[in-house]
Deep mutational scan, measured.
Amino acid sequence: MQFKLIINGKTLKGEITIEAVDAAEAEKFFKQYANDNGIDGEWTYDDATKTFTVTE
Rank of each mutant, 00 (worst) to 15 (best):
T11E: 06
Y45E: 01
I18G: 03
A23R: 12
G14K: 05
D46N: 07
D22L: 04
E27Y: 14
K4T: 07
G41D: 01
G9S: 03
K13E: 05
Y33N: 03
V54C: 03
E42F: 06
F30Q: 00
D47A: 11
F29C: 02
T53K: 13
A20V: 12
T55P: 01
E25K: 05
A23K: 14
E42M: 15
Y45G: 00
M1Q: 12
F29H: 08
W43N: 00
K50C: 03
N8R: 13
N35K: 12
K4N: 13
I39G: 01
T55I: 04
N37G: 10
T44I: 13
K4V: 10
G41W: 08
T11R: 04
T49H: 07
I7Q: 02
E19K: 03
E15K: 07
I18L: 12
D47P: 10
K31Q: 12
N37L: 08
G41Y: 03
N35I: 09
E15M: 06
G14A: 10
E42V: 11
K50A: 06
V54M: 13
A20P: 02
D22H: 04
F52A: 01
I18M: 05
E42Q: 07
F30H: 01
F3C: 02
M1P: 06
A48C: 06
Y45S: 01
K31W: 06
I39P: 02
E19S: 08
D36C: 03
A26D: 00
K31P: 00
T44A: 15
D22N: 07
D46L: 13
I7N: 01
A48K: 14
E19Y: 03
T17V: 13
Y45P: 00
E15W: 13
A34M: 08
Q2P: 05
D40A: 12
D36E: 10
A26V: 04
K4P: 00
D22A: 03
I7E: 01
T11K: 04
I6F: 10
F30I: 02
F29S: 08
A26G: 11
E42W: 15
E15Q: 05
I18A: 13
D22V: 04
I7C: 02
T17K: 15
A34E: 01
F30Y: 12
K13R: 08
T51S: 07
E25G: 15
T17G: 09
I16N: 15
K28T: 06
T17M: 12
I18T: 13
T53M: 15
G14P: 07
D36L: 14
W43G: 00
Y45R: 03
E25N: 15
D36M: 10
D36I: 11
I7S: 03
A48S: 14
K50Q: 07
A24R: 02
T55Y: 06
A34F: 03
I7V: 11
A23P: 13
G9R: 07
T53G: 04
E15R: 06
D40S: 06
K50V: 08
T55S: 11
A20Y: 09
G14V: 09
Q32G: 06
K4E: 04
K28N: 11
T11D: 05
K13Y: 09
L5I: 07
A24E: 06
A23W: 14
T11N: 07
I7G: 02
D46W: 08
G9C: 02
F52Y: 15
G38Q: 08
Q2F: 12
Y33Q: 08
I6Q: 10
N8H: 13
E25P: 03
D46Q: 10
A34R: 01
A48T: 10
Q2E: 14
A48H: 12
N37Q: 14
K50Y: 10
E56R: 08
T51N: 11
T53V: 09
D46M: 08
Y33F: 05
Y45D: 00
Y33A: 06
T49I: 10
I7K: 01
T11L: 08
I39W: 09
E56F: 11
F30R: 00
M1T: 08
K31F: 07
I18F: 12
T51G: 03
G41M: 02
E25Y: 11
K28I: 07
F29D: 03
E56P: 12
T17A: 11
G9V: 11
A26S: 05
A24C: 03
D36Y: 12
F29L: 07
T49Q: 07
D40G: 08
G14S: 09
A24D: 14
I16A: 12
G9I: 10
E42H: 09
A48D: 06
L12G: 05
T17W: 07
F30C: 02
Q2D: 15
D46H: 09
Y33K: 05
E56M: 05
M1R: 09
T55W: 15
K10D: 04
D47W: 05
L12T: 15
F3V: 04
K4Q: 05
Q2R: 10
V21K: 15
E56T: 14
N8M: 04
